[in-house]
Amino acid sequence: MDLTDHWASSIWFWLVLLLVLMTGSLLVGSVTTNISQLWQPDAPQFAVVWELRFPRVINAVVVGACLSVAGLLIQNLVKNPLADPYLLGVSGGAATVQLLVIMMGLSLSQSWLFLSGFLGSLLATVLLLKLSYLGELRPNKLTLNGVVLAFGFAAVISFVLSTAQGQQIKSMMFWLMGDLSFARPSLLMVVLGFLACVWLYRHARSLDVLARGDLFAAKSGVAVKKMNLWVFVLTALLTSMAVAQAGTIGFVGLIIPHLVRMLVGHRHRDLIPMCLLVGGCFLLLADTLARTVLSPVQLPVGVFTAIIGVPVFLWLNRKV
């Protein structure tokens, strides 16, 4: 491993990079801010930075971290490197509920909007679990049922879009492509995400063994049924929160686990914290581009995760 690879695989490198990206994201936008003005309450840009940009920065980091870890888990669960968090179909539950809220013009607070989408995802998760759990969680059945549920929710979403009017359609399409414009960081999301990652880190060894196959894991003493169920529940939980908070943002959960495995190997004790940092960096970079490239016009963040994600994934696929 050369010096560049060593730094790229260092958790400190990504932590510093995240802090640099956060600072840069606070400074740029439709109004450029000097770094010295970040600490001057009487500066004209002070309110813009801390009341508008800072919550969005935190939101991007948290959502990116959740989607990255969810992608790592779902790829472990179904033993498919092309799997991403939306494979479960639970994102459709959040999307359906929140689009219905937009269409009906309900004036819900940000917290209630988040909770409504979260509830929709949890209901979809329960349905998927009911369909796929027959004494044990079968990854092949889970994958097929998740894909079918995703198509079902997509049909409902298409119906909602076809019956919406005027400005509602633009708002819905913007949200479906990923939108961090108005959401505020959710304390519930931060707490649940932190607890989920702590649990996963404590069971990193079992996840390592499980990644080598259910039969091998069972022979190694891992409670395969229990671990698969927990991995499914935590994947659905992290995905539900991310979608409820920011809409459907693609490629984060697909490419980040691949990139991190190239950097640090296959041990989940290394993969989990690195996915948190690299995922946060990736989505923060994409969101910063989304609101600055055509400033003052803001674009959906999903556009830039795809623009960055497609060539990165093709490059990663060649390296494997």
Rank of each mutant, 00 (worst) to 15 (best):
S220E: 11
L215C: 07
V57I: 13
S240R: 05
L207Y: 02
G71P: 00
I307E: 03
L129Q: 10
A244D: 05
V147R: 02
V28N: 03
S121N: 04
G250E: 02
F194A: 15
L72A: 07
L18S: 09
W50Q: 03
V31Y: 10
H266A: 14
H268L: 06
G302S: 11
I308V: 13
W112N: 15
G92T: 00
S111Q: 15
L271K: 04
L314Q: 13
N317M: 15
S111L: 15
L137S: 11
L285C: 08
T33I: 09
P55N: 08
Y86W: 09
F46I: 01
W50P: 00
L3I: 11
P41D: 05
R291A: 01
M172T: 08
L122Y: 11
L161M: 11
A124E: 05
R212C: 13
G166F: 10
F194Q: 11
Q75H: 06
L82M: 15
A218R: 13
L67Y: 04
S132F: 07
K170Q: 15
L128G: 00
V198F: 04
L129E: 09
I102R: 08
A217L: 02
K141Q: 14
P41K: 08
L234Y: 01
G302L: 08
V209G: 02
L283I: 07
L210Q: 04
G166K: 12
L289A: 03
M1C: 07
Q75W: 10
S109Y: 02
A94E: 01
S171Q: 14
V126S: 13
L234G: 04
I74S: 05
A154W: 01
G93S: 03
V233D: 06
G166N: 14
Q75E: 08
G221D: 09
L17C: 07
K219W: 05
L192R: 06
L106Y: 15
V293S: 05
P273R: 02
L188P: 09
S158N: 14
Q245F: 01
H6I: 14
L187Y: 12
F174V: 13
N228I: 01
G93F: 00
L192K: 09
T32F: 08
S121M: 03
S111A: 15
V209S: 01
T305K: 08
W175F: 11
V48E: 06
A60F: 04
V147E: 03
S162Y: 13
A244E: 07
H258C: 05
C197S: 10
L82R: 09
G93I: 01
S171M: 12
L137W: 06
L82W: 11
K141N: 15
L144Y: 13
A217C: 02
Y201A: 10
L21A: 07
G105V: 05
N76D: 10
L314M: 15
F54I: 10
S121F: 05
V243A: 00
L316C: 12
P44Q: 11
S132C: 02
L119D: 01
F282D: 02
L99M: 10
L259Q: 02
F174T: 14
G221F: 08
L142Q: 04
S121K: 02
H6P: 00
